[in-house]
Design a protein around this nucleic acid. Structure first.
Ligand SMILES: [Mn+2]
Ligand SMILES: [Mn+2]
Ligand SMILES: [Mn+2]
Ligand SMILES: [Mn+2]
Lengths: 220, 220
DNA sequence: AAATAAATTTAGACAAATCTAAAACACAAC
DNA sequence: GTTGTGTTTTAGATTTGTCTAAATTTATTT
């Protein structure tokens, strides 16, 4: 309905992501997420409260209003569609898409995004396996599970990766793991919580840190 | 080499376009082009002069420096590649591409643009027939001529349209004229400077105002 | 050459977004 | 229940880009 500045959009999106886990978001959390200072956060929160995008009482933390959530989902839709475009069409690698999408997401032409969506064939997930909101802001919440919680010898498909750095990408590439990879956990070691997994008759060892970042769905 | 703000980029691009015809650009010209006030122009010109992007002595008008020209060509490259993308891939119509490209052009990732260029197959002209600068900022200057200056019965190909409004697009569509259309001028009328042209055995009447906006190359 | 008009620049103000330093507040520990 | 610590907000300053109104310079008339 309305148009928000790049800065406002970045704050809105960050609140959205932080409140997924926390419920209520604090000033310091948001400041560190956005690499800015708490004072700047307070200023912006006042502004967004005035625009009725979030609920906020001084010292009480904040969360997005219904309207704020809708706006956030619009931004996330743009972000993830561009990520998909960059990876799929321009052959960007997995860890490069985020930074560029961070800018493209602020070009807010409804028609641009809906046509892009169509051009891409209405993709459901971005290159990191995160779901892409549809035209109406509806987001697909598939129940995914971390491989640390996966029972032994159960076939599953990688659908999401938590960390999105180039470091984790390097490691995943080396082990032939990507979104869509079929795997099963063969063994878990209590000593260091590492595990052995099987991919196409090959066995790989996975550290605890890595395992925590790999999420799967069961074969359907 | 450096990064410029959206505002700086809009000024740089506008100076580039205005100096094509005029050579030297004046404060008022630029203000009206950018729908801003002369005082704002003066402020920005001082800043761009400091950054060595243009030559400017108070009251004397301005023109881009060598460096400024390079920057301008980079922006125009981005603008026109996005216009091509929007028209070709997302099926935007001719008159819709400019407004969106006006925003996309400011997302300045070298890699993004070069990959986009490759993805599009290194197009040479945008949907309005304007040439797209290559990676090095080199621009193709094909000698085009307005159909008002075209000799009778000479086959030529439409390569550029001056005005880029939806109004002219409506008219051109109605007369089956687009970039690449082959035509020849059959008759010119001195009374109102209108003319009759032939396209694929069909005859169309063209007003003076329209003719002034249609540019062609000779068949090669 | 002086007067007038037009273009351009300066001066001063304002909104957006940020920061630092100081004040106010919440809450846990004593 | 007072004290202390960390969190949050306020106060005041800064940067960027814009504007209006006044002053200045250039150009055009008489
Ligand atoms: Mn962003
Ligand atoms: Mn993503
Ligand atoms: Mn622009
Ligand atoms: Mn164009």
């Amino acid at each position: 309905m309305f148009n928000y500045s790049t800065s406002e959009e970045n704050y809105i999106k960050a609140v959205f992501h932080l409140q997924q886990s926390d419920g209520m978001v604090t000033t310091n959390e948001l400041a560190s997420e956005l690499k800015t200072k708490p004072a700047s956060v307070t200023d912006m929160m006042k502004k967004l409260k005035n625009k009725k995008l979030l609920h906020y009482q001084p010292y009480q933390g904040f969360r997005l209003s219904h309207e704020g959530n809708k706006v956030a989902l619009g931004i996330i839709r743009r972000h993830r569609l561009w990520e998909y475009f960059l990876a799929e069409k321009l052959k960007f690698s997995w860890d490069e898409v985020h930074a560029v999408a961070e800018h493209l997401e602020h070009v807010s032409s409804k028609k641009l995004i809906d046509k892009l969506d169509e051009f891409l064939g209405f993709p459901r997930v971005d290159p990191h396996g995160d779901p892409i909101p549809d035209v109406n802001g509806k987001i697909e919440t598939s129940k995914q599970v971390c491989i640390t919680a996966l029972p032994l010898n159960k076939q599953a498909v990688v659908c999401h990766v938590g960390d999105q750095s180039s470091e984790i990408l390097e490691l995943l590439k080396h082990k032939n793991i990507g979104i869509g990879t079929k795997l099963e956990v063969k063994k878990k070691f209590d000593f260091d919580n590492s595990m052995e997994i099987k991919i196409k008759q090959q066995f790989y060892n996975i550290s605890e840190q890595l395992a925590k970042n790999i999420f799967v769905k069961y074969e359907s």
